[in-house]
């Protein structure tokens, strides 16, 4: 059965590593749905969060292939372990002065921030899980969405266990 998997990777922070990993996915016909990368507490390593869709067997194969990469230090599948997921969206909506108030209200419900405003547009910043972001997009659609920028999720396991050390399966 196809479903979404969230995989956290600890990788060597060097040029070419992202291309290697992207190449593994494309070379085997897997599609990356979300990808975020950033430096970790150790500047020699970067952390990636990758979201893929597939069935168990395909994702198992992806994880094994990732593990085989010499630049990959650790592969952690967060799909089935308690984790926190967050994504940021910047969403630019067409709006006239008389409808701004409605959007302010929506922003408040979504605990969002207005980060830019002009005569005929308004940009919102919202953080949350994917479902919340999708709901925000749906509700703003009727106003006329001009542009969206999403980060893709970053994910981290709950509790003391961590990717570089003990108890992370």
């Amino acid at each position: 059965m196809e479903r979404e998997y969230t995989i956290a990777l600890l990788v060597v922070n060097e040029s070419g590593v992202l291309a290697h990993i992207a190449g593994l996915f494309s070379g085997r016909g897997f599609n990356i749905r979300e990808l975020s990368v950033g430096e970790t507490e150790n500047p020699e390593y970067s952390r990636m969060t990758i979201v893929v869709k597939g069935d168990d067997q395909i994702v198992e194969q992806i994880k094994k292939q990732l593990n085989k990469f010499i630049d990959v230090i650790k592969v952690n599948d967060l799909t089935n372990i308690p984790s926190v997921h967050r994504e940021i969206i910047l969403i630019k909506v067409k709006t006239s002065a008389n409808r701004r108030q409605e959007i302010f209200q929506i922003a408040e419900v979504f605990k969002g921030k207005i980060v830019d405003i002009s005569h005929d547009s308004l940009t919102l910043e919202v953080t949350g899980i994917t479902e919340k972001i999708e709901a925000l997009i749906a509700i703003l659609k009727p106003y006329g969405i001009q542009e969206i920028a999403r980060t893709g999720r970053v994910s981290i396991s709950r509790g003391i266990s961590h990717i570089g050390g003990i108890g992370n399966g």
Binding site: Q57, E60, Q61, K64, Q65, N67, K68
Partner: peptide
């Protein structure tokens, strides 16, 4: 020797 070979085509 390659864990990725195991279970790739056959369970």
């Amino acid at each position: 020797i390659d864990p990725a070979s195991i279970g790739k085509n056959v369970i």
